[in-house]
């Protein structure tokens, strides 16, 4: 059976679901952040697959920009986590519920 667009999209969807599962299940801020990266990469895979099968370059250019923006996003997010850790000495979402009643 030939590998088509559907196969790539299924892998992408499965990877996205894994990332979402990590965001819901894990309680450590850093692991949640890594799961977010996983979801971002799943979207990238879908875009590159669309680009290849629809004979159009725009998907690849989009992924190029997404990777750049993701690098910026990771650096800012990690700086925020470090700043939070300095204040609270914890990176667990259960310890960071100041706004909860």
């Amino acid at each position: 059976m030939n590998v088509g667009l559907e196969h790539y999209l299924l892998v992408s969807a499965a990877l996205f679901s894994l990332g979402l599962l990590g965001v819901i299940m894990r309680r450590n801020l850093l692991v949640i952040y890594m799961s977010l990266e996983l979801m971002l990469n799943a979207a990238n895979l879908a875009l590159v697959a669309f680009s290849r099968f629809n004979n159009n370059l725009d998907g690849q250019v989009m992924v190029f920009f997404i990777i750049t923006v993701a690098a910026a996003e990771v650096s800012v997010g990690l700086a925020l986590i470090v700043a939070l850790y300095r204040k609270r000495a914890s990176a667990h979402v259960e310890d960071l519920t100041t706004m909860k009643l």
Partner: peptide
């Protein structure tokens, strides 16, 4: 998918 699974659980 295998490595992604190991990242999460």
């Amino acid at each position: 998918l295998f490595f992604g699974f190991l990242v999460v659980v």
